[in-house]
Nucleic acid binder design. Structure first.
Lengths: 326, 326
DNA sequence: GTGAAAGCGCTAACAG
DNA sequence: CTGTTAGCGCTTTCAC
């Protein structure tokens, strides 16, 4: 392993000078810098991140924690988040992906992160987030609105998006509207239901209880939920699914039952995932700018490292994507 | 920050003793260990990974490199790989996800990985893999068979899976069989074509040139490819798509064209991705055990760390998943 | 401008 | 069994 001392020996200077030169310190003559850079290059010198980290108290590692790598989070969502963050982070940073631990033993987690982004789905993550906060590193919580206004928080206005969509649906003249809901403990599920209810109530409509079926954001639960709705004596004209995965399951159920979409039944999703243009018929849905939100999360972290004062709360608007499933 | 010296002071021993006790050295009396563990606990001591790393020459970071985070790799594939690895790695390890750099400037990458898993799609990654090898860390290349037998390599027998599937298709009496191919430079695309051709040629069949259409593993290219095939004067009875995403696009194209699946046209995919049971009709496909392959990749790395001698080459069989799209 | 020396938190000879 | 000492590769006072 080539160290700065090796370079120093070749250059005939002290290792201190090498360190300064490599870090572009103003104390070093430009020519000395050039000479040292050339030697470092020729020796294929690679800095030892661990040594740097030890002395600088900085690891150059950003943690990304996911509520559930396995359930309730669709693959495309996770990938969008990873892309958004890694596209934004400068290359000296490493992105460490972890499944979020619900256990209380989090304190034992090593102290090696410069900052963390928590993709949180439910308030069951609050314990984890609180434990993380104690580490005194910048944290941004993505995807779920926090009570605690002292943490950086990037969320989207799910309720408003659903409200807009349902208003649009009502304007089209539909009245029998059902909803397949997300995981009850997830904030996103509550938000989406809120937007749904607001539009319904504004029109003074009453949806029968059977029109609200439980789901868990999985393809399967969408299929099951739709089967249940279609079997009703008075089935709905429109099914709003709290995410695209469930909408795909629901579309499948309609096809199996021989109901034509959108003629006999309309299906609406939420997320605008990569599959949604390729369902049959293409899915009408609500776009949530996950990539952009993740980019902002990374940017906020970077700004916090630079001690910049930043706005803590950030909202993204969702938008309607009208395709052919309604 | 609490260090071993702080613990030593409280315990009235040297910091060396603390270090040994915490590392469960046989040199330390059990009672001393217990006492020190208790003090560490009460002080909320957290080891400094950077200091440990520096002296042990071990970072506890595993790099996961992806050929293309953006194109040619479906989301579910990436997520399966991440899950497989992180479920296998002991918790003291950190999984760092990186997009694979095609640039030749890879040498500048810091030396901080204990090992790496490269999810490689094409031989264009060979330069990167070669550069990585120079770091003298264990590397396992996932997903693509290597020429270089000195590296650990975990692959699946894609050709054989496709061959089995096509043999099955031919046994059903189908003769007009088309293929939408993957990205030409990807090893997987070549393997899948190989299995396809083998079955065709064994039956002494000749597929017209128009039955081979180019694709790029994206949903869109599957849709486009299928449209092209359906527009042929003599369209095929069966379309084999080199991955599930393209199959989903192809199914969509068939619906748009009003062709009934499987009555008028059969569709076959490859991967058995999470969506494949929820297409309409459910997709007949070839399962590739990505999760298990990734677990093995992580296990191999761990064994290499422990200086165990391991088999370098590992093959996984694929299997047929017969659903209703054919 | 540059160098000598100290020290980040930890582990590992070596000595007792 | 335990402590003393040195050192991992780097940055940073403090002198010159």
């Amino acid at each position: 392993m080539v160290t700065i001392k090796d370079i120093a020996k070749v250059a005939g200077v002290s290792h201190t000078t090498v360190s300064r030169a490599l870090n572009d310190s103003p104390l070093i003559k430009p020519e000395t810098k050039k000479k040292i850079a050339a030697i470092a290059e020729s020796l294929h010198y690679v800095p030892n991140v661990n040594a740097k980290s030890l002395v600088n108290q900085k690891s150059y590692i950003i943690g990304l924690y996911f509520s559930h790598l396995s359930i309730g989070t669709s693959d495309s969502f996770l990938v969008e988040v990873i892309k958004g963050i890694s596209d934004t982070l400068p290359s000296e940073y490493t992105l460490a992906v972890h499944e979020l631990l619900q256990s209380d033993t989090f304190d034992e987690e090593p102290n090696r992160l410069d900052g963390a982004i928590v993709m949180s789905q439910s308030d069951r993550d609050d314990g984890f987030i609180a434990a993380l906060s104690k580490k005194n590193i910048p944290i941004v919580v993505l995807n779920r609105q926090l009570q605690d206004a002292t943490l950086m928080n990037v969320t989207s206005n799910d309720a408003q998006g659903v409200y807009q969509m349902m208003t649009y649906v009502l304007e089209q003249g539909f009245r029998k509207i059902a909803m397949i809901e997300g995981i009850a403990s997830f904030g996103s599920a509550r938000e989406r239901r809120k937007g749904f209810m607001k539009a319904i109530q504004e029109k003074q409509l009453v949806c029968p209880k059977e029109y609200f079926v439980a789901g868990d954001y999985s393809l399967e639960s969408g299929q099951l939920g739709a089967q249940q709705l279609l079997a009703l004596p008075e089935p709905p004209e429109v099914i709003f699914c709290a995410n695209d995965d469930m909408a795909i399951g629901a579309i499948n159920a309609c096809h199996q039952a021989g109901r034509k979409i959108p003629e006999e039944i309309g299906i609406i999703g939420f997320d605008d995932s990569s599959f949604s243009p390729y369902t049959y018929p293409p899915l009408t849905t609500i776009r949530k700018p996950v990539y952009e939100m993740s980019q902002l999360a990374a940017t906020l972290l970077l700004q916090a490292f630079a001690n910049q004062v930043v706005e803590q709360q950030h909202f993204f608007d969702t938008s309607l994507i009208i395709r052919q499933s309604l």
